[in-house]
Simulated scan of single mutants.
Amino acid sequence: MLKMQIIGNLGKDCVVNNVNGKSVINFTVAHTEKFRDSQGNSQERTTWVDCAWWTDRTAISQYLTKGKQVYAEGQPEVRSFTRNDGTAGASLTLRVREVQLLGGREGGAPVSSGGYSTSSGTAGTPMSNEGPADDLPF
Rank of each mutant, 00 (worst) to 15 (best):
M1C: 09
M1P: 04
M1L: 09
K3M: 11
M4K: 00
Q5G: 14
I7F: 10
N9G: 05
L10D: 00
L10K: 01
L10T: 00
L10I: 01
K12W: 10
D13E: 06
D13S: 02
D13M: 04
C14D: 01
C14A: 15
V15I: 12
V15T: 11
N17W: 03
N17A: 13
N18D: 15
N18Y: 14
V19Q: 06
S23N: 14
S23H: 14
S23C: 12
I25S: 02
I25W: 02
F27R: 03
H31C: 07
E33P: 08
K34P: 15
F35D: 04
R36F: 14
R36G: 06
D37G: 06
D37I: 03
D37P: 02
S38R: 13
G40H: 01
S42W: 06
S42E: 10
S42N: 10
E44T: 13
R45Y: 15
R45V: 09
R45E: 15
T46K: 05
T47R: 12
V49L: 08
C51D: 01
C51T: 01
A52W: 04
A52Y: 11
W53S: 02
W54P: 05
T55H: 05
R57E: 13
A59Q: 08
S61I: 05
Q62H: 11
Y63T: 01
Y63N: 11
Y63I: 05
Y63L: 08
T65D: 00
G67P: 00
G67T: 02
Y71V: 09
E73P: 06
E73F: 07
Q75P: 02
P76N: 00
P76Y: 01
P76A: 01
E77T: 14
V78G: 04
R79C: 07
R79W: 06
S80I: 09
F81W: 10
R83V: 10
G86H: 03
A88T: 10
A88F: 05
A90K: 08
L92S: 00
L92Y: 02
L92A: 00
L94T: 02
R95S: 12
E98G: 04
V99S: 03
L102E: 04
L102R: 06
L102I: 15
G103P: 03
R105F: 08
R105K: 14
E106H: 14
A109T: 15
A109I: 10
V111E: 02
S113N: 07
S113G: 14
G114F: 02
G115H: 01
G115D: 03
G115Y: 04
T118F: 14
T118N: 14
S119K: 15
S119T: 13
S119H: 13
S120T: 09
G121T: 05
T122H: 12
T122E: 12
T122Y: 12
A123T: 08
A123M: 05
G124R: 09
T125S: 10
T125F: 12
P126I: 03
M127R: 06
M127I: 12
S128R: 14
N129Q: 11
N129P: 13
E130N: 13
G131E: 09
G131A: 10
P132I: 08
P132Y: 07
D135H: 15
P137E: 09
F138T: 06
F138I: 10
F138C: 02
